[in-house]
């Protein structure tokens, strides 16, 4: 290949990634304009705050899901884990009265479920789908036991601060999500851990032979996803001022859809956190817009399913076209 033939290819590769994000931004604009025409409340500052807060948990969980899907895995247990780690946190809080202990217990509980996933998937090489399907049921069961199937009210101001407080119209959870995005971006792009995530997802065997210990990386990636579920649990409890045994229901579905919408390859090895952020925004705006425009709630699930199917179809076909 001559040097002359070389440069267009580079711009083309960049275009592929940028094109995806440009399309997502375009769709976000179209969706916002569309919904604001349909409902004048959509664009109010208050609603933007409410919208962002309502998808803050989805942001956190989806970023963890991005790491996992980059390894070619999946985490079906995140929604149940939010309920479980929230339960552990709330019970620890009400027993000890200490918000700090409550925080730590919620995080550790989330990481514990993640660790179980990681060990079975990374070390014992079981199917991620099957392992997390099991912990999906298991964590929900534990949550129901902890809560005795009933919600627990929380009035500790420190514990509720992250999910419940607003500065003027800005919920504090929004800058918190932004900080997490920056921290996770540094972790993914600028550390050996992040490079190992991509290596494990692109070719596990090669990563192993090159001494990258992908079996170990995978464990930590699921622990990370569990920790983000624990954080999400704290945010969730803060939003509604109570711990709910059915918190996080269908959250794994929303997260997977948002991550795929953001351009992360189902097969692993390709994708970026920015795409996931845009994916969550677009998905959140569509769902929020459907609520505000008074769309029949029973139709929402149907629409979500259609979005997922459509994106997977589109990605699979464009990918097939490229690989020939």
């Amino acid at each position: 290949m001559s040097d002359a033939a070389v440069s267009p290819r580079r711009t083309f590769a960049l275009d592929g990634l940028m094109l995806r994000y440009a399309v997502l931004v375009g769709l976000i604009v179209i969706a916002s304009v569309g919904f604001s025409l349909a409902n004048s409340n959509f664009y109010s500052i208050t609603n933007v705050g409410i919208l962002l807060r309502s998808i803050s948990v989805l942001f956190l969980v989806s970023m963890g899901m991005t790491f996992i899907m980059l390894t070619g895995g999946i985490d079906l247990s995140v929604g149940s884990n939010v309920a479980f780690s929230g339960g552990v946190g709330v019970v620890a809080l009400t027993t000890t009265g200490s918000a700090t202990i409550g925080f730590i217990c919620a995080l550790l509980a989330g990481m514990a479920i993640g660790w179980v996933n990681g060990v079975f998937i990374g070390r014992l090489r079981l199917s991620a789908f099957m392992v997390t399907l099991a912990t999906f049921a298991l964590a929900r069961g534990l949550a129901l036991v902890i809560y005795d199937a009933d919600s627990i009210n929380v009035d500790n101001a420190a514990f509720l601060w992250l999910g419940g407080t607003s500065w003027n119209n800005l919920p504090v959870v929004i800058p918190f999500v932004a900080l997490m995005f920056i921290a996770l971006s540094v972790l993914l792009y600028r550390t050996t851990f992040g490079r190992n995530v991509y290596a494990a997802g692109s070719n596990f065997n090669t990563a192993f032979v090159l001494g990258r210990r992908p079996e170990r990386s995978v464990v930590w990636i699921y622990v990370l996803s569990g920790a983000l579920a624990g954080l999400s649990a704290i945010v969730t409890v803060g939003r509604v001022s109570s711990g709910q045994p059915w918190a996080g229901l269908f959250l794994e579905f929303d997260a997977i859809t948002a991550v795929i919408l953001g351009g992360t390859a189902l097969s692993g090895g390709r994708g970026r956190l920015l795409g996931t952020i845009l994916g969550v925004l677009l998905y959140g705006i569509i769902i929020n817009g459907l609520v505000l425009t008074g769309t029949n709630p029973y139709l929402q699930s149907l629409i979500k399913g259609m979005i997922l199917l459509g994106v997977v179809l589109l990605d699979t076909y464009t990918q097939r076209g490229k690989s020939v």
């Binding site: 550390t191 050996t192 490079r195 991509y198 290596a199 997802g201 692109s202 070719n203 065997n205 090669t206 990563a207 192993f208 032979v209 090159l210 001494g211 990258r212 390859a265 097969s267 692993g268 090895g269 390709r270």
Partner: peptide, 24 residues
Amino acid sequence: DKNGILPQLSVRDNIALPFLEKSV
């Protein structure tokens, strides 16, 4: 193709991977 390359990753990542720690 089975255990030599990381297909979707860049040439840079494929080369740098084994001794990554030395550039940290």
